[in-house]
Simulated scan of single mutants.
Amino acid sequence: MKKMSVKKVFMLAVLTVLVVSLLLTGCAPANTEPAPAETSTGEPAVTETQATDYPKRAMEFIAPSGAGGGWDLTIRTVAKTLQDTDLVSVPMPVTNKEGGGGGVNLAYMQEKKGSDTLVSVYSPPLILINLNGSSQLSYKDTTPLTRLITDYGAFVVSKDSKYQSITEVMDALKEDPKSIKICGNSSAGSMDHIQFLMIAKVAGVENVGEIDYVAFQDGSGASQVLGGHVEIFSTGLSEVRGLIESGDLRVLASTADKRVGTGVVAEVKTCKEQGIDATFENWRGLFGAPDMPDYAIAYWEDVLAKMVETDEWKAACEKNGWDDAYQNKEDFSKFLEQVNEDYKAVLTEIGMIQ
Rank of each mutant, 00 (worst) to 15 (best):
F287R: 05
F287D: 04
P293G: 00
R284I: 09
A278M: 12
K272I: 14
T279S: 13
C271R: 01
P290R: 01
K272Q: 09
C271A: 15
D294I: 01
P290A: 06
A296Q: 06
T279D: 03
D277V: 12
V268I: 10
N282I: 15
K269S: 11
N282G: 03
R284C: 02
F280N: 04
V268R: 00
C271V: 06
G275T: 11
F287S: 01
E281M: 12
A296N: 12
D277A: 13
D294L: 07
L286T: 01
P290I: 00
G288W: 04
E281H: 11
V268G: 02
L286D: 05
A296M: 07
L286V: 04
A289H: 00
I297N: 03
E281S: 11
K272W: 03
D294R: 09
M292F: 07
F280H: 13
G285M: 08
A296T: 12
G275Q: 12
L286M: 09
Q274D: 11
C271S: 14
R284K: 14
K272C: 01
A296I: 11
N282S: 12
K269Y: 12
G288P: 13
G288D: 00
D277Y: 09
Q274L: 13
D277H: 09
T279E: 08
E267N: 09
N282V: 14
Y295A: 04
Y295K: 00
D277Q: 15
E273I: 09
V268Q: 01
D294Q: 14
A278N: 10
M292V: 03
L286H: 10
T279I: 08
K269G: 06
E273S: 13
Y295D: 05
A296C: 09
V268A: 01
E281K: 15
A289Y: 01
L286N: 07
F287Q: 06
I297P: 00
D291Q: 14
T270I: 11
T270K: 10
G285H: 02
Q274Y: 06
C271K: 01
L286E: 00
P290M: 07
M292C: 09
A289S: 15
T270P: 06
G288V: 03
R284N: 14
I276T: 10
R284S: 15
F280P: 00
